[in-house]
């Protein structure tokens, strides 16, 4: 086990940022912390790397206590890497020196940095200043810099939020490869479900400072702990008190008849809105359905939640 968090609570004045949080992660594992703004995910990240202290609970890495009531290990002594949301590259240092910043002079800095530059496809950019790099290149420098200290745990804070959509998919897959190649354990904080599902082995869902569910994306998708969790993974419909996913609404069969209220083309399918007994449902359909069309429907699978 690389990281153990036990009953972590953190308050900022009257606001409880994290409440009784408990989880652990295995060596080499990647966990995504998923939640909306204010859910406490960035606070958790800052606590793990030592930029905030916990109020109660215990946090340890490789069985070494980082923070509890009696101990607080300063960030510079934790050996945890962090890639900031906007990369936080040092603007006065070139690419090489940014990556070499945390590498001890006792180590072979040049070889270490050069090899990381090769892995992150930055070779040739050694002398460039941060503002001379593209968004994707800056991201790779930030990642290389964090990996250069050979951290026991790597943290990524909203790593793709500053990238445009076309670049994001490319960089995401590159970074995933680099992380897997390096074998480092990793925590990614994000509010994008796509980032979480594509990068992480497990996903931890935070809401109002509480850990609602932690598991693989498949298990969470199939058995979400709450309506909130279910909605994070896509559209959820509610009909006569029954919850079900949009994909489980089957059109053209069943006894009930709904009226089409809207149908428009998006991502290769028609996003369709139906009305049944004054209740609205959404689903996707392969063909266009004119408004006011009456169509039979059935529900393939219901969702049930353990948390209200």
């Amino acid at each position: 086990m690389i990281l153990e968090a036990r009953n972590i609570t953190k308050r900022f004045g009257q606001i409880i940022a994290l409440s009784n949080l408990t989880f652990d992660m295995q060596k080499g594992e990647t966990i995504a912390i998923l939640g909306e703004s204010g859910s406490g995910k960035t606070t958790l990240l800052r606590i793990i790397c030592g930029l905030e202290e916990i109020d109660t609970g215990e946090l340890s890495i490789n069985h070494k206590v980082l923070n509890n009531n009696n101990t607080f290990l300063r960030p510079e002594n934790r050996n945890i890497g962090l890639v900031f949301q906007d990369n936080a590259l040092f603007p006065h240092l070139n690419v090489f020196n940014n990556i070499a910043f945390g590498v001890s002079r006792k180590m072979n800095r040049f070889e270490k940095v050069s090899s990381l530059m090769a892995i992150t496809k930055l070779t040739g950019l050694e002398k460039r200043m941060p503002h001379e790099l593209s968004g994707g290149q800056q991201q790779r420098v930030a990642l290389a810099r964090a990996l250069a200290t050979e951290p026991e745990l790597l943290l990524l804070d909203e790593p793709f939020s500053t990238l445009d959509h076309s670049l994001k998919n490319e960089i995401r897959s590159e970074i995933k490869d680099i992380i897997k190649t390096s074998g480092v354990s990793c925590i990614i904080v994000t509010h994008h479900i796509d980032d979480a599902t594509s990068m992480a082995d497990r996903i931890a869902i935070l809401k109002d400072g509480k850990l609602i569910q932690i598991n693989t994306s498949k298990i969470i998708f199939d058995n979400p702990a709450s309506e909130y969790v279910a909605k994070l993974f896509g559209t959820v419909n509610q009909l006569d008190g029954v919850f079900f996913r949009a994909k489980d609404l089957i059109l053209g069969e069943g006894n009930r008849v709904a009226a089409v209220r809207e149908s428009y083309f998006e991502n290769g399918l028609f996003q369709t809105t139906l009305e049944y007994n004054n209740q609205v449902m959404r689903c996707v359909h392969s063909t266009f359905l004119p408004i006011e069309t009456k169509i039979h429907f059935s529900i393939k699978k219901n969702l049930s939640f353990s948390v209200k």
Binding site: C49, G50, L51, R74, P75, E76, N77, R78, N79, I80, G81, L82, F84, D86, A88, F90, P91, H92, L93, F101, G102, S104, R145, A146, T149
Partner: peptide
């Protein structure tokens, strides 16, 4: 200065004196 530069240097192992010389002074030049 952005707090993130100082935080990044902390996480990369720089103590308070080294943050002053390696981040603070060069950025304030």
């Amino acid at each position: 200065d952005s707090a993130q530069h100082l935080e990044a240097s902390k996480i990369l192992g720089a103590n308070s004196i080294s943050r002053f010389f390696k981040i603070g002074i060069p950025m304030a030049k």
